[in-house]
Amino acid sequence: MTTTITAEVFQDLRGVGCPMNLVKTKVAFSKMKSGQILGLILDNGPPINNVPRSVTREGHEVLSQEQLADGAWSVLIRKA
């Protein structure tokens, strides 16, 4: 049995490089409540290597990361 987690706020950050992808992630968090889930699409390479690490360092919880057919990553993060 699988549990499906749904993002309450979603941002497609394909084509948005570092560090503006993290800036936009922080803007999204600033409008969310603690415990809400943010879904991001991040490019492969530096974005998927950096953004989850940075949000983890700030105390948020990365729930999953899954590579999509086009190589980008779908990431779910719970706001601290």
Partner: peptide, 22 residues
Amino acid sequence: DFTEEQLERYSRHILLDDVDVD
């Protein structure tokens, strides 16, 4: 609501945990 230009202009502040969007 920050404009795209403001987000870029102030990005190095927003990136700081102790400053952030707020």
